[in-house]
């Protein structure tokens, strides 16, 4: 059974019986690798579910390398338990949205509703739109732009794969730290004016914060 150490991906969605526990147990019997990536698809799993899942996998002498899912709740749960996990963006057909801005890929925007609390981490392979606050101690990261319809009080990293045109916008932009591409900046100390949305971007090798102007930003 442990002859092979190659990573094997297991999708745990059981379309027939809707019972991922049984399904996972059956699948584990058939595989011949002990390194596993779990694809949770669109299942919303709680901390208890994930702990149970890990126990099932461990019983079969296997080890979980990482998770992936299309549910941001599951991603946050697995990450808060210390596992590596990838968010998969569902491809809701973007053809209906015919926008002339070539930088805008609606299908590659991860949308998260709710507050990100201390210790939580959210990563997007495209843009990231958050409806809620990012509290101190939380980290958000995106390969594209980050927009926060709320307060940014934690750490944000836009253009995480090196896109230096990426921007970070928030209704209240008071982060602990800002990162765009490979640049790092500390957040401003003084409190901002109420009701003034702001945007951070790179201007001549430095991260600067300007009042938010929707027309100037390519989302």
């Amino acid at each position: 059974m442990n002859s092979n150490s190659e990573k094997i991906m297991i999708n745990i969605t059981d379309h027939k019986y809707k019972n991922w526990r049984l399904y996972l147990k059956n699948k584990l019997k058939k595989i011949n690798s002990n390194n596993i990536e779990i694809d949770c698809d669109n299942l919303e799993l709680s901390c208890t579910d994930i702990i149970e899942l890990i126990a099932i996998v461990n019983e079969n002498n296997c080890r979980i390398i990482s998770f992936c899912s299309t549910s941001s709740k599951t991603i946050i749960t697995t990450q808060s338990l210390g596992y590596k996990s990838h968010f998969i963006v569902e491809d809701h057909s973007s053809k209906t949205l015919n926008i002339n801005n070539k930088d805008f890929h609606p299908s590659k925007t991860l949308f998260h509703q709710g507050t990100l609390r201390s210790g939580e981490y959210l990563d997007s392979p495209g843009n990231l739109l958050i409806l809620g606050d990012v509290n101190p101690g939380a980290i958000v990261s995106a390969e594209g732009n980050i927009m926060i319809w709320g307060r940014l009080l934690g750490i944000a990293h836009a253009g995480s794969k090196g896109n230096s045109k990426a921007t970070i916008s928030a209704i209240q932009l008071r982060p602990v730290q800002l990162r765009i591409s490979n640049k790092v900046a500390r957040g401003p100390k003084e409190k901002p004016q109420d009701g003034m949305a702001e945007q951070a971007k790179i201007d001549s090798e430095k991260i600067i914060i300007l009042p938010f102007e929707p027309s100037s930003s390519k989302i």
């Binding site: 709680s46 946050i76 808060s80 609390r117 201390s118 210790g119 509290n135 101690g137």
Partner: peptide
Amino acid sequence: VRDADRVIGLLNTNS
């Protein structure tokens, strides 16, 4: 407050 925030996050993920 920071630690409480973390705990609240965990409580939320456990509904």
